[in-house]
Simulated scan of single mutants.
Amino acid sequence: MGRNLKNAVIAFLVALPSILFHLYFLNHYEKSSHNSPLWSWCFHHPILLANVFFFFNVNVLFWVISHIQSSHWMIDLYWTVIPVLLVHYYATHPLGQYNSWRSKIVILLTWVWSIRLAHNYFRRARWQWGAREDWRFTDMSRQYGKHWWWVSFFAIYLSEQVFLIGVCLPFYVVHSVDKPLNIWDFVAAAVCLCGIFTAYFADTQLYDFVTRNQKLKELGKPLVATLDRGLWQYSRHPNYFGEQLWWWGLVLLAWSLGHGWTFIGSLINSMCLAYVTLLVERRMLGQDYRAEAYRLYQKTTSVWIPWFRSSAIAVKDKST
């Protein structure tokens, strides 16, 4: 079996323990909940049960597989999958009480977001399963050396549990509050869609830029130092901005249902992404052929929120 096919099979099978357990629970909790402490606990603690699934099925199992394969590629792929699993988990949990139309809207939006992100993941990986792991994990493995085998459990998997369970808390709220649709549902949905489309176009422009530079490199021609056209003309990280719009749109939805406390998940995620932004920019400045151009780009272009470039770039454009 080739590596690509083997990784595809692993990716499809690895989440089955949680899925099968939940399906078994749904089929047996009514008959056994009165005399089974396990089913009673699963029934009364949906968020804690989601954390148990995540801990054993992702943190432990993914971590073991990553060391067998010497690559932490799978957690990146499952960033696109876990929110879909969670939204369906909360929608099917027996404690769920919710407006069916709101649920359908959120589930549909989550699938659209997931397909967009999965498409970008496979496009960058040349449609290969497990072709590479995130460069940040590779850098950390060099940094921690022989200790990376255990540090990775906390730095990658346990931290991802905090991020993913946190940002998906609005899914729980949507499926635990039964209120009629209101104007805020449509405002939140519009914010989410705006985020999805912003991230899609930004990632597409970045992919085209990287592809063109690869062709220039093959031809032995000078590389273009900085992407500063399209959405990247107004923001240095419009893809990150779009992703944040998606998650904060869900927070707006939860807030409209009386559960504004769910902002904590998106806040932690935004803070983490701010640190990732710093790492990415340091990496850009560490590449000699683009360092000078990127410093100018930093001075003239907004970090996240799209805005007009400063006059310095306008002067530069007129002089070229």
Rank of each mutant, 00 (worst) to 15 (best):
L216R: 15
L267G: 10
D228L: 03
D178S: 12
N239K: 10
L278K: 14
P170M: 12
F209S: 02
L193M: 14
F171V: 07
T211Y: 09
F263M: 15
S256Q: 13
L231A: 00
L223K: 09
A254V: 07
L181E: 11
L193F: 09
R236D: 00
L285I: 06
H237G: 01
R229G: 08
L257R: 11
A199E: 13
I196A: 03
G260H: 13
G220K: 11
H237A: 01
L273N: 12
V191F: 04
C194F: 10
P222D: 02
W184L: 14
T211V: 11
V210I: 14
W232H: 00
L227W: 03
W246V: 11
C192W: 13
W184A: 12
A189L: 02
W261Q: 03
L279I: 12
G249E: 12
K215S: 05
L245S: 02
F241Q: 01
E218C: 08
V177I: 14
L223R: 12
A190S: 14
L206N: 06
T277P: 02
I264M: 06
R236L: 00
P170A: 08
R282K: 12
C194I: 11
P238W: 00
R283T: 13
M284L: 09
A188P: 03
T226I: 06
Y240D: 03
G195I: 02
Q244D: 11
T226L: 01
L250E: 09
Q244P: 07
S266F: 10
Y207P: 05
L231S: 00
V174G: 04
V280G: 03
Y200Q: 13
L267W: 13
Y234C: 01
L245Y: 01
P238N: 00
E281T: 07
A190T: 15
D185V: 07
I196H: 04
L169Q: 12
V174E: 07
Y275P: 06
D185R: 14
A254C: 09
L219W: 05
C194N: 08
F186H: 05
G195L: 01
L231R: 00
W248N: 00
G230R: 01
D208Y: 08
G260Q: 13
A199Y: 10
G265M: 02
L273I: 11
V276R: 04
A274E: 13
W246G: 04
S270N: 14
L279E: 04
R283P: 06
